[in-house]
Amino acid sequence: MTTRSEPEDGRPGPGLDAVMSERRHLVNLAYRLLGSLTEAEDAVQETYTRWYGLSREEQDAIESPGAWLTTVAGRVCLNVLGSARVRRETYVGEWIPEPLPGRDEWISGRTGGASVDPADRVTLDESVSLAFLVVLESMTPAERVAFVLHDVFCHSFAEVAVIVGRSPAACRQLASSARRRVRAARPSPAVAGRHADVVGAFKEAWEAQDIEALIGLLDPDATAVADGGGLAATFLHPIEGGERIAHAWAELARRRADGMTLLESTVNGRPGLVAQQDGVTVTVFGFEVTGDRIRHIWVVRNPEKLSRWTVGPARPPRGGGERGGSLLENTPPTEGGGGGRDPS
């Protein structure tokens, strides 16, 4: 993004440091609101474009540039959410939020692999877990904006009202409704260490094609959802039931492709898996673990959502070096294995 650092008279712009220091906050906010880092970056760029489109007198009149930027970014995101709901009705297959790599695993999706400015990194916490973002997708745009601004970023309902264009009381009701959705959709998650153990055990059972072990690690009502966006082969409809998922994943292991490796990694701040073909990340797997079992698996293969994943930073399998072979290929599993195309 190109911005004007100084006005034509050569003097620093009003609150320049304060304005630019808001960038990371705005990226964090926009990603949680939109579920797409690409769209979030565009929203933040639009926000700064509007700031630098103001005259010097208009900028001087703004008491808090940070509050102004947040208000504008919120409104931009609200508009994007409205149009996104229409676009996703024509999306090929299921739509899953764009997954984020761990802190040390970023590459730039727009600068040809250059290092990423820390201001462009999203803070990884509970509010960016895939499970949380998927629940946010079920909300109306107004609910999502009110909930994220108030419950995640601690803005007052008076501030939220300015962004959403409703009364503070109405915004309070929106956030309350959103809160109920979150509570209803998300049982208590597993502790972080146990989450990693379950995902690691799932990987080992998958590689071993151990169907019984896979079934034991999956909740009986587990679901697997994949997002290829019409740009990568995958199953178009969710696979429901732990036993069906276990058979489908075991079939994938039997049809493994040359040059494919499966590695443990961090996905939106939680333990997950990545599949790499000849060193390039082609699939990201996110998991929701409750208790000792996997409740949801999210499979992201849309290459437009994987542009920020590095080549080969993920952890090797436990207990030693890389295992030979691979797990995934673009071949449908058998009918008995759950149907649909494979999630790699």
Rank of each mutant, 00 (worst) to 15 (best):
G74T: 00
E240M: 06
D342N: 15
Y52E: 08
C77I: 12
V19K: 02
M139A: 11
L236K: 09
G228C: 06
S129I: 06
L214A: 01
G336P: 01
W68N: 08
A119E: 11
R183D: 13
P332Q: 04
F285V: 10
E251H: 09
V160Q: 03
A158C: 05
R172C: 07
V274I: 15
V116E: 06
A43C: 08
L100Y: 04
A213Q: 00
A257H: 09
T3S: 12
R181W: 13
L81I: 10
V182N: 03
R110V: 10
R85E: 14
E94G: 08
R341H: 11
H247C: 05
A43F: 08
W206Q: 00
P313K: 13
V128I: 13
L149P: 06
G340I: 00
V92K: 13
P316E: 07
E264D: 14
A67H: 11
V162C: 05
L29S: 06
W95L: 00
V44N: 05
A250N: 08
E204A: 11
K203N: 06
G286V: 01
A257P: 00
F157V: 06
A201P: 10
T261E: 09
A84K: 12
E251D: 15
R103H: 14
W249S: 01
R318H: 09
V92T: 15
A185K: 05
W51H: 02
S344F: 09
L273G: 05
A232N: 07
A205P: 04
G15N: 10
R85N: 08
G291V: 14
S167A: 13
G269V: 04
P332G: 01
F285T: 02
V134S: 07
D17K: 09
W309R: 06
A40G: 12
A43Q: 01
G228M: 03
P317K: 02
G112E: 01
G337Q: 03
N330A: 15
G241W: 03
V145M: 08
L174Y: 01
A196T: 09
E329H: 13
D17H: 04
G272T: 06
G340H: 04
A196C: 04
T47E: 00
T2R: 14
G336R: 08
Q276M: 14
L33M: 07
D125A: 14
G66P: 10
I107Q: 02
E240K: 12
R32D: 06
D292Y: 04
A248E: 01
R318T: 10
T281E: 05
G10N: 03
F147T: 08
T111R: 14
S344G: 15
F287M: 07
P14A: 12
L214Y: 04
A184T: 13
R244T: 11
I163Q: 05
G312E: 11
A73F: 05
P141C: 08
L133E: 00
R315Y: 13
S138R: 15
D42V: 09
Q59H: 10
R180M: 14
R172S: 13
P141W: 12
G216C: 11
R23V: 10
A184V: 05
P303F: 05
R293C: 03
V311N: 09
W249F: 15
T2S: 15
A73P: 11
T70C: 03
T111H: 15
G112K: 01
G229A: 03
E264W: 03
N330T: 14
